[in-house]
């Protein structure tokens, strides 16, 4: 690939990303009243989206072979327990990550 072709390729990726991020704002501009249905979606989507994002992070975990996703499940359980117990965001995230690193580096 020539440098010009590389620039065009990167440009295509930038354009695609910008479109997915800006499209809702272009279709429903701030100046106009947003339809009730879209307002409803804006309210109920985030909790569903975060469920989807958690699964997105785990999409490449192999539950059928290898460690069967045990380090991931144990670490997520630890994050959940820590968070319900202390409700300290950084503590839950750091605690879960340290447990996960320990698990994949030593036990699994």
């Amino acid at each position: 690939m020539t440098v010009a072709q590389q620039i065009i390729t990167i440009g295509a990726v930038v354009l695609g990303t910008v479109i997915t991020r800006s499209l809702p704002f272009l279709i429903f501009p701030a100046g106009k009243e947003t339809p009730d249905f879209i307002k409803y979606l804006g309210r109920v989507l985030p909790p569903a989206v975060f469920g989807m994002l958690v699964i997105y992070c785990l999409r490449n975990v192999d539950f059928l072979s290898g460690s069967h996703g045990a380090p991931e499940l144990i670490a997520i359980a630890a994050v959940t327990l820590l968070h319900v117990w202390k409700r300290q965001m950084l503590l839950s995230i750091a605690g879960g990550t340290i447990i996960y690193m320990f698990l994949v580096q030593t036990l699994f």
């Binding site: 909790p47 994050v79 959940t80 839950s92 995230i93 750091a94 879960g96 996960y100 690193m101 580096q105």
Partner: peptide, 15 residues
């Protein structure tokens, strides 16, 4: 395993 920090963050936000 350090990349798990992102998963942990999304789990916490979900919680």
């Amino acid at each position: 395993g350090l990349d798990f920090v992102m998963t942990a963050m999304f789990v916490v936000i979900f919680l």
